[in-house]
């Protein structure tokens, strides 16, 4: 029976879709049967991030409205035979689907998969409520910025109110060099402010831009720091006890010399 996990954030542009694609891919690489669902109806993007945009025939709304069977709408990944995408409709809006539809849909899928990852739209309105309706667990993505952390705090409260908590936190795009200089919130500070358990930290990584340009997951690229962080997060999701590890390779010489003495520790 699958675990249904919704990836949300409140604020847009913090990396929900990238996180969904990479965690889904990493879990499938480790042998899990994974479905990703794009719940951002009208603004679909998980298909392009996963490089599957040319294979879409049917979408989530087609399934909900009975024009297609689930099996017809699920798109198989190019590389991993146990990874599937259920794309969002692009020409409809959020009201095309209800919370009950999402619960029925995920329940129908549970027996076929180990993980169902739902990419939530930004915001805290209908789209968000639909995306968490069928969830067993919620992951909140934030970046170490005041706007993203503030919105994450709102979502933490809403997830608790919907009895889907406690949510776990993924801190994305952490720049260790800035943290060491005291110019960016550290993981510990974000965790302290939000009072939510962290599942992992993803370092800022320019390779994400090029892997996303190509429609490939960063987890396939062994030189991607973000990719390695996502693999660790996937393993923690899978129940492995992997400490949130220190990431020193990325820092420059000065940070390495002085960061250990005066700076905060970097982890992924």
């Amino acid at each position: 029976m699958a675990r249904v996990i919704t990836i949300t954030s409140g604020k847009g542009g913090v990396g929900k879709t990238t996180t969904t694609a990479n965690l889904g891919t990493a879990l499938a690489m480790h042998g899990s049967r994974v479905a990703t669902i794009d719940a951002d109806i009208g603004l679909r993007n998980l298909d392009v991030v996963m490089g599957l945009e040319n294979r879409i025939v049917y979408d989530l709304v087609d399934v909900v409205e009975g024009r297609a069977r689930l099996r017809q709408a699920l798109i198989k990944d190019k590389r991993l035979p146990e990874l599937y995408l259920l794309p969002a409709a692009q020409t409809r809006d959020k009201d095309a689907v209800t919370a009950a539809d999402m619960i029925n849909l995920t329940n129908e899928m549970r027996s076929e998969f180990d993980f169902i990852l739902i990419d939530c739209p930004a915001g805290i309105e209908t789209g968000f409520r639909n995306a968490i309706a069928g969830a067993d667990e919620v992951l909140i993505v934030t970046t170490p910025e005041v706007s993203a952390v503030r919105d994450a705090d709102r979502v933490v409260g809403l997830v608790e109110a919907a009895e889907k908590g406690p949510a776990r936190l993924i801190i994305n795009r952490l720049n260790q060099r800035l943290v060491s200089r005291g110019e960016m919130l550290s993981m510990d500070e974000v965790v302290e402010i939000l009072a939510v358990d962290p599942l992992g930290v993803v370092p800022e990584d320019e390779l994400i831009v090029s892997t996303t340009n190509r429609g490939e997951a960063a987890v396939f690229n062994p030189s991607s720091y973000a990719g390695r962080a996502y693999i660790n997060i996937a393993r923690r999701l899978n129940g492995e006890n992997i400490p949130i590890m220190e990431l020193t390779e990325q820092t420059n010489l000065m940070d390495r010399l002085f960061g250990g003495l005066f700076g905060r520790r970097a982890r992924t």
């Binding site: 952390v149 919130l185 500070e189």
Partner: peptide
């Protein structure tokens, strides 16, 4: 600035 960010948040 991280300290300022934390206090404001």
């Amino acid at each position: 600035s991280a300290q300022i960010a934390k206090e404001r948040l």
